[in-house]
Computed example of a mutant assay.
Amino acid sequence: MRTYYLYKFHFYGALHIGPDDGRNVLQSSGILLHSDTLFSALCIEALRDETARNSLLEEAKAGRFLLSDAFPYRADELFLPKPLIRTEQGLRQMQDPGQRKLFKKLTYLPASLWDAYLDLWREGRPFDAAACLQQLENLSFLDERACAAVRGKEETDPYLVRGLQFNKDCGLYCILAFDDDRVRSLVEGLLQSLSFSGVGGKRSVGFGKFQLECCGELAQSACEAARVLGTYLSGEPAAHWMTLNTSLPAEDELEEAMEHAEYSLCRRGGFVHGMGYKKRTVYAFASGSCFSKRFTGQVRNVAPEGRQPALRMLKPMFLGVDV
């Protein structure tokens, strides 16, 4: 039986996450940590133990554990990606241009307002987008740091790195799903190790280190937002299924998955850790994409041909959306 667990990342300092488009990598930073990036970081931690690494890859390919993107939180409030779904009832509430602009700015929804937002699309009930945007304010602030590249030159090349610092009681959380406690023990151990190494970019200058908080099973959490979230992940029949992570159907699933789908794509690239060559670029479904049918997804080798394999985990974690 699949069980869902909540983990919070309390960052000690700045976090740097490069943009999806690959431009201005050092001079900008996002707040979303993609699930495939987190999986790659776990694989790097597992390199110290070949048995652990082989086990992690085997469990991932078999789909015996899943992980969400890492989304922001404030205290007990968890933020979810805005579902890409539209109905005539909801669109009638957005005839005012000002209202449409507010909804366009929405990227995340507080879990406490999830049902209210769905009621907009189910029944056309008013939704206060301005109040929702207000809750998203002041989660983090910009951190700019001057660095210098030496690389054997007589003179150093200065450059600027931008990251994010989270405000008090704010950070990122992710959800992990396990089929048994053996897999959970393996992944939690790697997460603990990762907290010392850090996630994201520019870890060599101290970015990305965090304290890991294991918040337990969603269904039994003391946090009301987590318990509510657990009910939507229970696998009960739903009209639509929203991805909570970066995912891509296998080739034989793609046509069926695209039927009646509302989605956005994100570019996934980057370098293979410690190898100095680029991964093959993949365009995957971003979290918040909605589908009428669930799919299994894939773990894809994105290393150039003839190189040591580099795996990108693109198996979806679905949240039921009844609209």
Rank of each mutant, 00 (worst) to 15 (best):
K8F: 05
S234N: 15
M242H: 09
Q220R: 15
L67D: 01
E236R: 15
F210C: 09
L118P: 00
E217I: 00
R162W: 01
F178A: 07
N54G: 15
C147L: 12
K168L: 04
A130C: 10
E88T: 11
S221M: 02
F141K: 14
L218R: 05
E255H: 09
Q134M: 10
R280V: 06
T243G: 07
E50C: 02
E251R: 13
Q220M: 12
Y5A: 01
N301P: 01
V228C: 14
Y277C: 13
E59N: 10
L311D: 12
A261P: 00
K278N: 08
S287D: 05
A62D: 12
E137C: 09
A148M: 12
C215R: 10
P19L: 03
L118M: 14
R92N: 12
G274E: 02
L80N: 05
Y7R: 02
R92H: 11
E253V: 05
C266E: 12
F291V: 06
F39N: 07
V323E: 12
G288P: 00
T296M: 04
N54T: 15
S195R: 06
A111C: 13
N301K: 10
T107V: 14
T51S: 14
Q211C: 08
R268E: 04
I17F: 07
P249E: 06
C215I: 03
L160F: 09
H16L: 02
E236H: 13
A261D: 03
V321T: 11
L190Q: 08
L80A: 09
E217L: 04
S264L: 06
G320S: 08
C174G: 12
R53D: 03
Y232H: 15
F196D: 07
Q135T: 15
A116S: 15
F127V: 09
L26V: 05
L254R: 14
T243R: 07
E45N: 09
S292H: 05
L56A: 06
E259C: 08
A14M: 03
A149E: 10
E144D: 09
